[in-house]
Amino acid sequence: MSSLSNYSTIELDKEGFLKNLNDWNKEIANILATNEGIELTEAHWEIIHLLRQFYQEFELSPAMRPLIKYVSQQLGSDKGKSIYLLKLFPGSPAKIASKIAGLPKPDNCL
């Protein structure tokens, strides 16, 4: 992927997920977000950090419903809504936000 050309050692799978979780940093996140057509704001970062926390806790990339539940538990019910996540990460929030957060593709992202 051309926008990752400064990171020639970083490998992505064919859907653009990092192959190695340890490659992740904020700069990489910005590049991955740009690839998705998203410019990261504080609201995005809050979800990205939460996703990384989720992965620490469960060693799992969440599907949509558990992500909403987790956001609701951790950040309050205003943000624990699919519409809120859809606005930040249009299309498939669990998948796209996981990708930007450097998590593996959700297993059960069907």
Binding site: E57, F58, E59, L60, P62, A63, R65, P66, K69, Y70
Partner: peptide, 15 residues
Amino acid sequence: DKNHGKLLSALPLYD
């Protein structure tokens, strides 16, 4: 290995 207990801990989030 991945921690199986952590995986199980996610069950409530999946209802």
